[in-house]
Design a binder for these strands. Structure first.
Length: 803
DNA sequence: ATAGGGTTAG
């Protein structure tokens, strides 16, 4: 080193040293990406030797720092240069543009700043090219086009790079084929119309934007004088993008030397279409032909196993990877481990998924979001929340998974709270987070809030989002406004199976079983394949409407026509269907013939049916099974004691009450709520807490006396304690749903529909009373209880007393 | 100093 210092004293030596470092840096740049330790070593050597790099070498050094993902340090060096030249600036524009594609727009802002401070007389075509690319990475196609026009105005000559970059920007924004053609003409006039890279870019513009994209793209492809690897993959992925896997496969089969990228594209294309076996067949071929796999291949193949729930196959792939991959890169570890987490989760092995997650040396956002989704998916919501809080940097997906996770698990308040928190964190909600918040409103039956979110959704430009619209269907239905659900459903441009399921469920819950069945039939006619959820929904709808034979036919068609094995939940709905209609022999026969031992959903359905029909013997049998299976569930005790009370067997009632006390079973307190002026008012039985409850009692008294004149008689068999008749009538008059309805009648504008929500089933006397009430006040009253909706109008209920 | 294809989370 001392000798070296001596050497550098002479000017001649400085030249030699510059050449030496230039060569070193060139060597380093051949690595992709250059290792940061090599870059640091070269830099350290420069400092130690006393060499002061001039712009040419320094620019290269900074470039190497950027490429070894050390932009921050490179920037420090840059900031010390008094007047950085255009080459140095372009280096940073490029470096920042890569970080712009994966993030918050910060990278783009930095690139823009450097570009804007580059004096016009020092700019050149390359620097414009880099900035146009940065715009495209930042998904701002219009900005890219604007820059392109600007550079022409200033007489910079666009070259190959310019056209490939601006075309990739164009593909983000072109809406009409004329847009594509306009640029196509530009390209031809510029003389770059036969440059392979430019035509490739042009193909991908047509693929994304033309009216008949593949015809236009294919014409260009066929007429190309010289195709490179990218031309082939662009056309193949073009077919896949446009849902034409046969077209993709044809081109693929015509390739002489098939690139790994083409294999990967086709495999993932198959997986997305649900064609798992085609995907795996291709992967087997890859193996036989010894193509070799990279992380993209593995993630797609593991994705295929996950979506087909092929646990054993997935495990074999996992083992193969551990056995054969020796020095995996960072990116390899990220993507493959993330795919493995998804695999084990989708195969129902959450613990194995968790093991992979825990063992990862480094995790990226996808790892966190995947494990979060897994915990949310299985309903382990508290643990999910713990993960959520630990996630260092969240994106919109993180938020939306957690928000809808809360909503789906009935925690509407938490969902809304998180949605607001998301907004206060300066994180723009995406349509999925809106969907989560809207479902939260559905859970809480908060119509005012739901409508506000609907308005904000439109303001934010998400009105055509399928998932948000699906959420709106459910929200309006669960808030009692079936009409608004329907208008959302019928104005949607695209429907997926969730849309159909939601609308069918909405009709079913509101007692329109016939319409639910019609819609289901229409769904089948349009070629939408029903899934497990569809059948749950349609079975409930039939049950609510008493369409027993229809429901049975659908149940039988599940396996026969759609190859879906009915689960216990489906059997539960079938038993419910039969029992509500009083067909107990068929129900018990079905239970005996089931391929598995009856569990909670089956006995609950049976007990519910027995209550309706007063079948006490069978009811007791079902209740005893439930006492064994879920001894702390209050519903069983209450249903059974209701049955005894209806029969006047008060000793049995008190025996059951006693059982509850001894076993420490707490009854979920009944409560009803109503939204007035954006405020939720909650009422309990015999409420004394609500500030205006005295007014409500007084008004209720007036109403009841008017109702009596129309023939209303309080039905005291719904009072479950043995007491004097007068006391019983009083007890009935204090039920929470009556208080909430009366409050609504008092407070809402005259003629407005009254919508009340109750946490558990509506009481029989209240059900009867609301019929009379709707007549007396000439208003529509809607009550949602734990299971379904009741629309009271002109003395009738939409459920036809079948509930 | 600058361009372009394939993966995993809802």
């Amino acid at each position: 080193m001392a000798a070296l210092k001596e050497f550098t004293r002479t000017t001649h030596a400085v030249h030699a040293l510059a050449n030496f470092y230039a060569a070193q840096l060139l060597l380093c740049s051949k690595q992709a990406p250059p290792s940061s330790s090599t870059v640091r070593m070269i830099h350290a050597h420069m400092i130690a030797s006393g060499f002061r790099p001039q712009s040419h070498i320094l620019n290269r050094l900074m470039d190497m720092y950027c490429k070894s993902s050390n932009i921050a340090y490179a920037r420090q060096l840059f900031d010390e240069i008094p007047e950085p030249d255009v080459v140095a600036r372009t280096t940073f524009i490029t470096a920042y543009s890569y970080s712009a594609s994966s993030g918050d727009g910060l990278g783009f802002k930095l690139a823009r700043e450097i570009f804007n401070t580059t004096p016009l007389h020092t700019r050149d075509t390359v620097c414009y090219n880099a900035m146009i690319t940065a715009c495209a990475h930042n998904e701002d196609g219009n900005a890219a086009i604007k820059l392109f026009c600007e550079m022409k105005r200033y007489d910079f000559r666009p070259d190959n790079y310019t056209y490939t970059s601006v075309l990739s920007g164009l593909s983000l924004v072109a809406e009409h084929e004329s847009h594509c053609q306009q640029f196509h003409c530009e390209v031809v006039k510029s003389g770059t119309g036969f440059v392979t890279s430019v035509v490739n870019a042009l193909i991908s513009v047509y693929v994304k934007c033309a009216c008949s994209p593949m015809a236009a793209a294919r014409k260009l492809f066929d007429e190309m004088p010289l195709r490179d690897e990218l031309s082939w993959t662009t056309i193949i992925t073009g077919y896949i993008r446009n849902d034409d896997l046969h077209g993709a496969r044809q081109v693929f089969d015509g390739m002489n030397e098939k690139l790994i990228v083409a294999w990967n594209a086709l495999i993932s294309g198959y997986v997305h279409k649900g064609l798992v076996s085609n995907a795996l067949e291709l992967s087997r071929k890859m193996c036989l032909l010894e193509i070799g796999f990279d992380e993209f291949s593995y993630t797609s193949i593991l994705g295929a196993c996950a979506s087909g729930k092929l646990f054993l196959h997935g495990k074999q792939v996992h083992a193969y990877i551990t056995r054969t991959v020796k020095n995996p890169s960072r990116d390899f570890l990220f993507s493959v481990n993330n795919a493995l987490i998804a695999l084990y989760w989708r195969c129902g092995k959450l613990d194995d998924a968790r093991k992979i997650f825990d063992k990862m040396p480094l995790r990226d956002l996808v790892s966190w979001n995947t494990i979060l989704s897994a915990y949310v998916d299985v309903g382990r919501i508290e643990e999910a929340r713990t993960f959520f809080d630990k996630i260092p940097e969240k994106n919109e997906l993180t938020w939306s998974v957690m928000i809808s996770g809360f909503a789906q698990n009935g925690l509407g308040e938490e969902g809304l709270k998180l949605f607001n928190q998301m907004r206060s964190c300066n994180c723009q909600p995406c349509d999925y987070s809106f969907a989560g918040a809207i479902i939260s409103c559905a859970v809480l039956a908060s119509l005012d809030h739901g409508r506000q979110l609907h308005a904000q959704l439109i303001q934010s430009g998400f009105e055509s989002s399928i998932s948000a619209s699906n959420a709106l269907i459910t929200m309006y239905a669960r808030c009692g406004i079936l009409q608004d659900s329907q208008s959302v459903f019928f104005t949607m441009n695209y429907l997926d199976s969730v849309s159909w399921n939601s609308m069918i469920a909405a009709l079913g819950q509101h007692g329109h079983g016939g319409q639910a069945v019609d819609l289901f039939e229409q769904m089948l006619k349009e070629g939408i394949v029903p899934d497990r959820i569809t059948f749950l929904t349609i079975l409930s709808s039939c049950s609510h409407a008493g369409l027993v034979d229809q429901g049975q036919r659908y149940f039988n068609s599940m396996y026969e026509l759609y190859n879906i094995t009915p689960g216990e939940d489906h059997y539960g709905r079938l038993i419910d269907l039969l029992c509500r209609a009083g067909r107990f022999t068929e129900a018990t026969d079905t239970i005996q013939k089931m391929p598995f031992d009856p569990g909670v959903p089956i006995w609950e359905a049976l007990l519910g049916g027995c209550r309706i029909h007063g079948n006490i013997d069978l009811g007791i049998k079902a209740a005893e099974k439930l006492f064994e299976l879920i001894p702390h569930h209050d519903g069983t005790y209450i249903l059974l004691s209701n049955m005894y009370a209806t029969l006047g067997k008060w000793t049995d009632v008190s025996r059951i009450r006693n059982m509850m006390r001894v076993r420490g079973v707490k009854k979920e307190p009944a409560c009803s709520w109503i939204e007035v002026d954006n405020m939720v008012h909650v009422f309990l039985v015999d409420d004394t807490k609500h500030p205006e409850v005295q007014k409500v009692y007084k008004y209720l008294e007036e109403l009841v006396s008017k109702m009596r004149k129309l023939g209303y008689v309080p039905d005291t068999k719904f009072v479950l304690h043995d007491m004097e008749n007068e006391q019983k009538e009083y007890a009935l008059s204090t039920h929470s749903e009556k208080l909430a309805v009366a409050f609504g009648l008092l407070k809402l504008p005259s003629g407005a529909m009254v919508r009340v929500f109750k946490n558990i089933r509506i009481c029989g006397d209240c059900h009867n009373a609301f019929k009379f009430m709707s007549q007396v006040v000439e208003r529509e009253i809607v009550v949602r209880d734990g299971k379904r909706f009741h629309h009271f109008k002109d003395g009738n209920c939409s459920c036809g007393n079948y509930w």
